[in-house]
Computed example of a mutant assay.
Amino acid sequence: MIRSWAIMDTSGTDRDIALLGELVAIDTTSDRSNRDAVDLACRVLDHPGVELIRMPVHEGKENLVAIAGSLDGTGRGLLLSGHLDCVPAGDGWRTSAFELHERSGRLHARGACDMKGFDAMAINLVREAAERGCTHPLALVLTCDEEVGGHGARALSREWPADRRLPTATVIGEPTSMRVVRMHKGFLKIRLDINGASGHTGDPTVGRNAVAPMAKAIDRLQQLRDELLDLRTETSDAFGPLPSPVLSLVRIRGGTAWNMTPDHCLLDIGLRLLPDQDPQEWLARLEGELGPVLDGEEWSLELINETPSMLTDADCDLHRAACRLLGQHEELGVSYGTDGAWLQRLGLDCIVVGPGDISVAHQPDEYMPIEEYAAGRRFMESLITEFCS
């Protein structure tokens, strides 16, 4: 049984585990409200030295910004960033997905790794900073809807007051197995829409089939996908075994009945671009590739959602400090997106580093290794000492 953090007198990691138990008990699947989790964070952070700012995003969803110390307009200090939402629990769990269970030195629950483990740690670290005082501010951002397009971070990047400069040095605590990441790919969600004309399938002279030309489009897109796997840019080396942009065909819909000529067909396309590739150029490239094979058809290509790429200067103070503390010499990039894509638009230097293995996120029996969790706290404490003292 995990006891409340407020009645425990134990180590920082024990307090983090206790708070993690409370956080995972709140179902914050992205289609649900996150307000109960924000309420919990605010209760823990209820201290005279902490400023709490709740920012509504849309119905039932909020971002939370907590600041220990005072923003002085210089950008000094440190910002910790996490998201409160999780993917659906799904089936296949040995124990309840919304109860924290320890087995063989691992903490199992939905969100234990991605990323309520870091959230709990960060909340406690801000509370501790307020209790002891800090020369430069330690701030925390907890967002909604990261798992469904980063809508919370995007709203924050647009709505945060320009005259309240946050600490520039920003740690996105996504699970990286404690490896420092300074860049990630962007993700474009694109929809190809082909219009035909309805008719009876018994008479092929009536109507215009929208599915048939989609087959030609798919064939060309698959060829382009294979071509992109050989493409390299200046940032490719940081992405190890995944050094190229990646094009994926993820969903197709068309037709309504066996005896009706389909008058509409939709194809959903995912495109993950390297940080030094321009999304608008690649949308134009896709249109150019599809034009010849869809000649004479009525069609359109629409950008449904964009998660921008993230790219932080290797020589920025935070990246250099994090690599030094962890003994890391290589530069790393990842193919998944983070809130850093939007937070960098506030002029923040973002790195991604945190305990936990991304390969177990979104899986049944997701877990956080306790030993790595404790190491993650020690690392964050060292950064706080360096940037906030």
Rank of each mutant, 00 (worst) to 15 (best):
M1Y: 12
I2R: 10
S4H: 10
I17G: 12
T29M: 07
S33C: 07
N34H: 10
R35T: 04
R35G: 00
A37E: 06
R43Y: 04
D46Y: 02
V50I: 07
L52S: 07
N63G: 10
A66H: 08
I67D: 13
S70W: 01
G75S: 06
L78N: 02
R94L: 10
A97V: 10
H108W: 02
K116R: 08
K116C: 04
D119E: 15
A122R: 04
A122T: 01
R127Y: 04
E128S: 12
C134Y: 04
L138W: 10
V141K: 03
V141G: 01
E146I: 12
G152R: 05
L156E: 11
L156D: 12
S157W: 09
A162P: 15
L166E: 02
I172C: 14
I172T: 09
I172A: 12
G173C: 14
G173R: 07
G173I: 09
V180H: 08
M183Y: 01
L188F: 02
R191S: 08
R191G: 03
D193W: 15
I194E: 10
A197H: 05
H200D: 01
T201C: 13
T205Y: 01
V206S: 02
Q223V: 02
L224W: 03
L229R: 15
L247C: 12
S248N: 14
T256F: 06
A257T: 05
N259G: 11
L266K: 14
L266H: 15
L267K: 14
D276L: 10
D276Y: 13
D278H: 07
E281P: 04
E281S: 09
L286Y: 01
E287N: 01
L290A: 06
P292H: 09
L303N: 03
L311P: 00
T312F: 03
D313M: 01
L318W: 00
R320C: 11
L325P: 02
G327P: 09
Q328D: 09
H329Q: 14
E330P: 00
G340H: 06
L348Y: 04
G354S: 14
P355T: 08
P355S: 08
P355H: 08
G356S: 13
V360D: 06
H362L: 05
E366W: 08
R377K: 08
C388F: 14
